[in-house]
Amino acid sequence: MHELSICRSIADIVTKHADGRHVATVHIRIGQLRQIVPDTLLYCWSMMNSDTPLAGTELQVESIPGALRCATCHTTQTLDAPVLICNSCSGRDVEIISGEEFLITTLDLAEA
């Protein structure tokens, strides 16, 4: 369950940037190729922060689908499964163009 250590890292970053202000919501983007289970992440977030200044803070997860571009036929496709083969030409010379994101995008903070 690496989601717990991820939550610890998120909490450290959020606490640093909140600078003592109340945090209502943490918005994050997670690519589907990151092998992070959103429901487990949300559970770990609420469990880990239950007795901290971040208690009650909502973790809002935006899931980013995986996508690739084929170097052979230049087709761009969204991935339904983690198979890195072009659907158009069966080429294997592909580049992942989305789905590996992991980013805290914004914090909803109380006024200072």
Rank of each mutant, 00 (worst) to 15 (best):
M1E: 08
M1F: 04
E3T: 15
S5M: 06
S5N: 11
I6Q: 04
R8P: 02
S9C: 07
I10H: 04
I13Y: 02
V14T: 02
K16T: 14
H17I: 12
D19G: 13
G20M: 09
R21A: 15
V23E: 03
A24W: 05
T25C: 11
V26K: 00
V26R: 00
R29G: 13
G31E: 01
L33S: 01
R34P: 06
Q35E: 13
I36G: 06
I36W: 00
V37C: 12
D39K: 06
L42C: 13
Y43R: 05
C44K: 00
M47F: 10
M48H: 04
N49K: 02
N49A: 10
S50M: 11
G56V: 06
T57C: 13
L59E: 04
E62V: 15
E62L: 10
I64V: 15
P65V: 10
G66M: 06
A67Q: 11
A67P: 08
A67S: 15
R69C: 14
C73W: 07
C73N: 10
H74S: 14
H74K: 09
T78Y: 03
D80A: 15
A81Q: 08
V83N: 07
C86S: 12
N87A: 15
S88E: 11
C89W: 08
S90N: 12
D93T: 13
V94Y: 02
I97C: 01
S98N: 07
S98G: 08
E100M: 08
E100N: 11
T106P: 02
L107W: 01
D108I: 03
E111H: 01
A112E: 08
A112N: 05
A112H: 04
